[in-house]
Design a protein around this nucleic acid. Structure first.
Lengths: 341, 341
DNA sequence: CTGAAAGCGCTTACAG
DNA sequence: CTGAAAGCGCTTACAG
């Protein structure tokens, strides 16, 4: 049966060569047929595919990567998995990329540019076919690594019209302004902004908040409570207590993320602070559970699933060498008004 | 300067050959020195390392994988990223594996054995150095894929003493029994079990619940409310309402996961059901926010971080060809009593 | 302890 | 439209 000479270091897997022999063509033709390269006679394509099927051929990604200087990996760098936001982005990315034959490599930067740079080095060594990164805030070295690699890259979550830069996101600042304007429209004047983590996108929301407050003639820097610790329900509870103690005159709070807002709502209930009567509360991102709070939380629904999907599609185009329809895609958010405001 | 003949298809990266030339040794010696293989003269090791440093050499993982039939990837398969449990496991795994030179590839199975099998095929094609999977519930084909691959594999979250099987986990059944016993010890008799998703580990907790209820002479199948939908805060709220409507006599509820329990607590507050007066409530996993609930949630603190860490360490040993200290590691959980029970 | 040769399994670049 | 040759950048297996 097996007339091939036994290879010295054979790994035991079925090789392209065996498929080619089975189909009666050369390995190169088999390779082209299997990759769907055009310019191969339809009959040969069929014969090769049938042979591959029969032998149970699985291409070797390492050999392919070595020969073509490109792997089937797409590296995705996100700040944190404990932020449900990014889990949704990743889910959407995977749903687009996996059926297209790409493996998603998830890298977690912990909001640390130095760690991102380290991950980038490591992932780039693997010659990924594409790169998906979060936002624009990174070290100069990281920027050079990306640029110098020649690997197609799409930036997620933020949007900037810079030639040669590809991105899918939404305006964090506008969204921050919109939810602030909603609170102002409800007649609130002393609207606090409470934030944690203080990553670039949080600070952009802060800018939106300031813009809206200034426009309404209500801006007062003492209404901002900024804390660099990681965002969490527990921290939201603590920050609300701190806010009420140090700025008792506030009549509304815009939390930069729903987990903080949920904690704030729970703390308010514990302290007997009436929401929205005494204090209106709003969050950001519309995370799981926000609609179940007492009262249900007013928030901004951000298009994270759409960001992941559109970002992955744009990358797919770039990896194919095509020009995407647009270099920068700005998606919509929506203020979701519930009983907390 | 560069006396090397220009290669036809050079990828531009610094190669081992260049490092070897710079250090004045053969490529094989350079390879051995860089990989820390013992049996290379200390002086040569230093020279090679210095040369690599000078040239900015980064080993090519694809070439390495092709030549050695083993990559530096470790594939980790988890059911879901929206369950904070697995995010913690992954975080711990990454913290152990990354410094050891391994890349963690995260695969999400969505609790679907067919999808797991597909992912397994895809990951195994990449010749991972190791494999980390969740639990023991998979297709027969998946089991054969793992076994036939020869790739070291550690099972996480559950524990079984089967020769040749490596695992790190805890007894889901015992933990389920323990929290049930706590509710019984509080004098509750009509303790309901409310569960979603109904994955294997949830069903093991159900077994523990039944064991404890039977032992106390309180078991009644009508006290079980099992729902196959994905677990969420919103579903927990819905299920509590359903429970109170159809089994008004219950005096306690054990939710199979904290997100359900949090939703249940919120629903109870909305309905004016006093907790724990009228109804004691307990959860499972001690997820973020549970301690902030009103009242704070009694739950089981499960060792997910420890599972990830110990599992990764065990895999590290296996990948090095060592025998781990134990094939099956059983970790401890802890009942955390708070005001909801 | 060190090295020359061969090979891992593909694809690129060049012919025809 | 098809193929023979060479090469991608490493490591294994065999010598010495």
């Amino acid at each position: 049966m097996d007339t091939l000479p036994r290879r010295r270091r054979s790994s035991g897997r079925v090789t392209l060569q065996e498929v080619a022999r089975e189909a009666g063509v050369s390995p190169i033709t088999a390779s082209r047929a299997l990759r769907g390269e055009r310019g191969v006679a339809a009959e040969l394509v069929e014969r090769v595919q049938a042979a591959a099927q029969r032998l149970g051929y699985v291409p070797d990604p390492a050999a392919r990567a070595l020969a073509s200087a490109r792997s089937s990996h797409v590296a995705v760098l996100v700040p944190l998995l404990s932020n449900a936001l990014f889990v949704d982005v990743l889910e959407a990315v995977h749903r687009v990329l996996f059926p297209a034959g790409y493996q998603t490599l998830i890298g977690v930067t912990h909001y640390d540019p130095a760690e991102e740079e380290l991950l980038l080095r490591s992932y780039l060594a693997h010659r990924p076919a594409g790169l998906l990164v979060t936002g624009f805030d990174r070290t100069e070295a990281a920027r050079r690594l990306i640029g110098g690699s020649g690997v197609p890259c799409v930036h997620l979550m933020e949007c900037a019209e810079v030639p040669g830069v590809h991105c899918v996101g939404f305006s964090q600042a506008d969204a921050g302004a919109a939810i602030t304007e909603h609170l102002l429209a409800r007649g609130r004047r002393r609207v606090a902004f409470v934030a944690a983590q203080l990553d670039p996108r949080t600070l952009q929301r802060a800018e939106g908040y300031r813009r809206a407050m200034r426009r309404a003639g209500c801006y007062d820097p003492r209404l901002e409570l900024l804390n660099p610790e990681p965002s969490s329900i527990a921290l939201g509870a603590r920050l609300l207590e701190e806010l009420l103690k140090t700025r008792p005159e506030v009549d509304a709070v815009f939390f930069c993320n729903d987990d903080l807002a949920q904690g704030g709502l729970l703390a308010a209930a514990r302290l007997g602070v009436e929401v929205p009567g005494r204090l209106a509360v709003a969050g950001f991102n519309d995370l799981a559970g926000s609609e179940q709070m007492l009262p249900p939380l007013t928030t901004v629904r951000t298009p994270r699933f759409e960001v992941g999907e559109a970002g992955a599609r744009m990358l797919l185009a770039l990896m194919r060498g095509e020009r995407p329809a647009a270099d920068a895609v700005q998606l919509d958010y929506r203020v979701v008004v519930r009983a907390s405001s």
